[in-house]
């Protein structure tokens, strides 16, 4: 056992400047916390990567190629393109939104309750708002990776005919859709004391959103009384944008603005509530 000189551990006046630390934390605290979350994800790097690759491959083979074969033979092209091309950008959007529902529930609860992870940094110069935003940023970066992988798989399947310059936009669009669902979910999870509600969210919010947001068929193909699910669903708004990016589906400027406003609005409101809830909870 090495004997240590404990005088080197404590404040001596010529060590680090605490004032500078506070300034640096104020400037970059969001990123400092995001680093920790990303470092934590590294423990699951292999499963995350395998999931990111396997998921698009499996979905595109099963739905795009398999089911697509039947659809193309039966009804002919959907939205003017092969079913694979039609469904691929929508699958990208719905899978990242489904993933965000895992990232913004149990890990948030772990921060406040189970492992009390947020209570460590809250005693450092970081503010609760930076912890909320740092966690959010790290999750979004994960989806940057997941979206990129999905897009590359789409290219490999020939499922993004608009060319890579335009179709790469499906990645930020997917991230935006994930943010629009993830930010409000993070705010909601931050108000809870146990994870009981999460399985309800999975069953009654995430699943219907996956099925009825125009992912597998155009929204117009559903009975009109179900259309509202799409209108309030980040998946539908994201999918409409992603279809334009991926194969140039018709999209007016007005609708583009509407989709973007909806997604950005949900994100902003969610972040605002998150910051408020984190601050209230971590400082009481």
């Amino acid at each position: 056992m090495t004997e240590v000189d404990s005088t080197r551990l404590v404040y001596s006046g010529d060590g680090p400047d605490h004032g500078d630390m506070a300034v640096r934390a104020r400037r970059s605290g969001v990123w400092f916390y995001a680093e920790t979350v990303l470092r934590g994800m590294r423990a699951f790097a292999l499963p995350i990567l395998l999931y990111a690759v396997a998921q698009p491959v499996l979905y595109l083979v099963a739905l795009g190629v398999g089911l697509g074969e039947l659809v193309d033979r039966g009804t002919g092209p959907v939205g003017g393109v092969d079913y694979l091309v039609f469904v691929a950008p929508a699958l990208l959007v719905s899978t990242v939104v489904m993933s965000v529902s895992a990232e913004m529930t149990f890990p948030v609860m772990s921060g406040f309750k189970w492992n009390r992870l947020y209570y460590g940094p809250v005693a450092s110069p970081l503010e609760p708002s930076q912890i909320a935003l740092g966690h959010f940023t790290a999750v979004m970066l994960r989806f940057l990776l997941q979206g990129l992988v999905f897009w590359l798989v789409m290219l490999a399947f020939g499922a993004a005919p608009a060319g890579w310059v335009q179709s790469v936009l499906v990645v930020p669009i997917g991230m935006l859709a994930a943010a629009a669902f993830g930010a409000p979910l993070q705010a909601y999870a931050a108000t809870l004391d146990d994870g009981f509600q999460f399985s309800l969210i999975q069953r009654f919010v995430v699943m219907p959103m996956f099925l009825f947001s125009g992912t597998f068929f155009p929204l117009a193909a559903m009975p009109p009384y179900l259309h509202w699910i799409g209108w309030i669903s980040p998946v539908w708004h994201g999918t409409e944008l992603a279809r334009w990016a991926s194969y140039g589906a018709d999209l007016s400027w007005g609708m583009t603005a509407l989709h973007l406003t909806f997604l950005l609005g949900c994100t902003a409101v969610g972040i605002w509530f998150s910051v408020r809830t984190y601050t209230r909870r971590l400082r009481s």
């Binding site: 680090p16 500078d20 934390a25 400037r27 400092f32 920790t36 940094p121 450092s124 110069p125």
Partner: peptide, 9 residues
């Protein structure tokens, strides 16, 4: 290390 990062070290 990660805790030290919160202090901008």
């Amino acid at each position: 290390v990660m805790y030290g990062r919160y202090f901008g070290m």
